[in-house]
Design a protein around this nucleic acid. Structure first.
Lengths: 198, 198
DNA sequence: AAAAATATACCAACCGTTCTGTATTTTGTC
DNA sequence: GACAAAATACAGAACGGTTGGTATATTTTT
C-alpha cells in the first residue's frame, strides 16, 4: 500500500465519518461517499471490501478524535474528582459544543441507529460507552482510596449516571443546537460531583 | 371511510410504529410494512399518501401511548414534587423498562435519526421534548409557589436536566437492555429531586 | 348498484457490489 | 539517478435486487 493509497483511504474515512454522523449509516449511500470524495466505485472498493468495512474504519477514527478532545489535559490532573470534572467538561463543551462531528455525536447516533439492526456494530459502540463508564469508575475508587468522597456511594451507579447524562445532552443538543443544553448539563453535573465530596 | 378501512389503517399504524422504532424510518421499507400487515401497495396507498404520511400518523399514535403510561396516576397527585417524581418513575420504569416499543423509545430514536435529515419531522419530535420539559417547569414553579423548594433554583435548567437524564438512560438501555440502566437513573433522579426540597 | 377497500402490474431511480480495463505509483536493478 | 517490471490505484460499466410511488383492475363492504 503506497503513500497515495493511504491518503485517499484516510480521505474516505474522514468524509464518511461526517456523512454517517449527519445522515446515519443506512441512509448514507456509497454514492454519497463517492460524490464527496470525487472517487468512483472502483476506486473506493479497492480500499474497502464493503460498506460495513468502511464503518469499522470510521469508528476507529472517531474514537481517535474523541479521545484527543475528551482526555486533553486530563492525565496531568492529579485530583481524581477534578479529573472527572475536567473530562465531563471536555466531553460537553469541547467535544459536543465544539461540533466536532457535523451531526452531533457519532457514537450516540450510531448506537441508536444500529441497536437491533447490527449486533456486531452496535456491540462495538456500546462497549465504548461501557469502557468510558469503567474508567470513571476507577477514578471514583481512586478518590475513595484518597479519602476524598463520602462513604457508602455506589461508584458504578454514579459513573453510569454521568455517562447517561452526557448522552442525554447529546441527543437534545444534536437536534436543537442550543448551546444552553450542554452548558446546563455541565453546570448540573459539576454540582452533582460536588455533592459526592466529603 | 367505513369500519373496515379504519381498522386496517390502525393496524398499519400499529405495525409501522414497531418497525420504525426497531429499524428506524429510512431503513424500514414500504415492503417491510406490507409484509407485516399482509397488505399490498394498492391497499396501503389507499390509506396514506406517502411514507412520510405514515410517519406522522405513527407519531401521533406514539404520543397517545406515551401519555397514557407516563401520566398514569399523576393528575391526582397533589404535591407537585411527588408528581414530578412519579412522572420520572413512570417514564423510566413503566415506559422505558416496560419495553412499550420494541426498539426502545420511538421519540429518541426518531430524534437522532431525523435530525439534519428532515427538518419538519425532527422539529415535530423536538417540540414534544420541549413541551415535556415545560410541563415539568410549571410543576416546579407550582412547588415554588407552595414554598416546597429551596430559593434561587433555575427551574428551566432543572426541568431540562430531568429530560436529558431520561433521554440518556433511553439510549443506553435500548442498546444494552440492562434494566439496571433505568433503575439506576430512577434512583439518581429521586435523589436529585430530593435535593431541591426545602 | 354505489362506494370503499384491496390486488395486480408496473415504473424510474437507486441500492451495494463486482467486473474488467487502464492509468499511476512504487520498487528493484543497473 | 535512469528505467523497466511489478504492484497499486482508479475509472466506468454492468449486475441483480430494492426503493417509494402510481395507474388501473378487481373484490368486498355498505
Amino acid at each position: 500500500m503506497g503513500a497515495k493509497g493511504i491518503k485517499t483511504r484516510q480521505q474516505v474515512v474522514k468524509t464518511a465519518l461526517q456523512l454517517f454522523s449527519v445522515k446515519g449509516y443506512f441512509n448514507t449511500s456509497i454514492n454519497d461517499i463517492l460524490e464527496s470524495t470525487r472517487l468512483t466505485k472502483g476506486g473506493l472498493y479497492g480500499h474497502f471490501r464493503s460498506k460495513e468495512d468502511i464503518w469499522y474504519a470510521v469508528y476507529e477514527e472517531a474514537v481517535r478524535i474523541w479521545r484527543g478532545i475528551v482526555f486533553k489535559g486530563v492525565r496531568k490532573t492529579v485530583d481524581p474528582l477534578k479529573r472527572i470534572e475536567k473530562t465531563v467538561e471536555n466531553a460537553l463543551r469541547d467535544y459536543l459544543g465544539g461540533n466536532v462531528f457535523e451531526g452531533g455525536c457519532f457514537f450516540v447516533n450510531m448506537l441508536v441507529e444500529l441497536s437491533g439492526q447490527s449486533a456486531s456494530m452496535s456491540k462495538q459502540v456500546l462497549e465504548g460507552f461501557v469502557g468510558f463508564s469503567k474508567l470513571l469508575n476507577t477514578w471514583l475508587e481512586e478518590a475513595d482510596r484518597k479519602g476524598l468522597v463520602k462513604k457508602g456511594l455506589d461508584f458504578k451507579e454514579i459513573a453510569d449516571f454521568l455517562v447517561i447524562a452526557i448522552n442525554g445532552a447529546v441527543t437534545l443538543y444534536s437536534a436543537g443546537r442550543d448551546p444552553a443544553t450542554w452548558k446546563q448539563t455541565v453546570s448540573q453535573l459539576k454540582f452533582f460531583i460536588h455533592q459526592l465530596k466529603k
